[in-house]
């Protein structure tokens, strides 16, 4: 099992927010993460991250006027790191039933649609390794979820495809297949299609 990177702090069926254990170390935009929910593993694509003050009302203030390098700020006020937090959001794109219990064959029980229940608060979040990414992106059905994922959907699709491509034997072949899937999904939205294709053509 890969190392956990954070913990769910807010969850709905289609999306969750997690807090990172390491400040400023969210998983990359578009990468695939997973959560265990009982017998079910929930897969999600990282759709954004933010670092903020831990207390909602209090905003950090600039501290580096006297310093020559940024790291010096954290060195001179070590408590700072405790006052900040990095959260990320992820869009749920699928789930796998019967996960965990024994060896699960690659891709078996894998569904590219939303799970029956959202993640529980405090579920651990893991970053998927390339093998899992490749297995999950064998099917491109998850793209239909991302197509409707709000204002940054196109950026998100492009990022997740770039990410997934890197896990495949033949990245170009994968991207062409994905591109074709998108062409079908987006139908007459030629502009969106063009935007995404320009972002993934590499």
């Amino acid at each position: 099992m890969p190392a956990k990177i954070g913990e769910v702090i807010q969850a709905s069926t289609g999306e969750f927010t997690a807090q990172c254990y390491e400040l400023h170390q969210p998983p990359p935009f578009g990468s695939l993460v997973k959560i265990r929910e009982g017998e079910v593993e929930i897969y999600a694509v990282v759709s954004g991250a933010a670092t903020t003050s831990i207390e909602p009302g209090r905003r950090p203030i600039a501290r580096g006027r006297e310093e020559t390098e940024e790291e010096a700020i954290y060195r001179s006020s070590p408590q700072l790191a405790k006052l900040l937090r990095t959260d990320f959001t992820a869009t749920v794109v699928g789930h796998q039933k019967g996960a965990g219990g024994g060896e699960n064959k690659k891709g078996e029980g894998l569904h590219h649609y939303l799970p029956p229940r959202p993640a529980r608060i405090h579920s651990f979040v893991y970053l998927c390794d390339p093998e899992e990414v490749a297995a999950f992106s064998q099917s491109l059905d998850f793209l239909s979820i991302l197509v409707g994922a709000g204002s940054q959907a196109d950026e998100l699709i492009a990022a997740s495809l770039r990410h997934a491509a890197a896990a495949h034997q033949d990245p170009r072949d994968f991207l062409i297949k994905a591109g074709k899937e998108l062409a079908v999904l987006l139908g007459s939205e030629t502009n969106r299609l063009n935007n995404i294709l320009r972002r993934i053509k590499g």
Binding site: L175, G179, A183, G187, S188, T190, L193, N194, L197, K201
Partner: peptide
């Protein structure tokens, strides 16, 4: 699929885009 595609053809000089379309 979309007649607009014909009036504003995408950048098919790019082999990747051409192949996808």
């Amino acid at each position: 699929s979309d007649p607009r595609l014909m009036t504003a053809p995408p950048d098919v000089s790019d082999p990747f885009i051409a192949e996808v379309l």
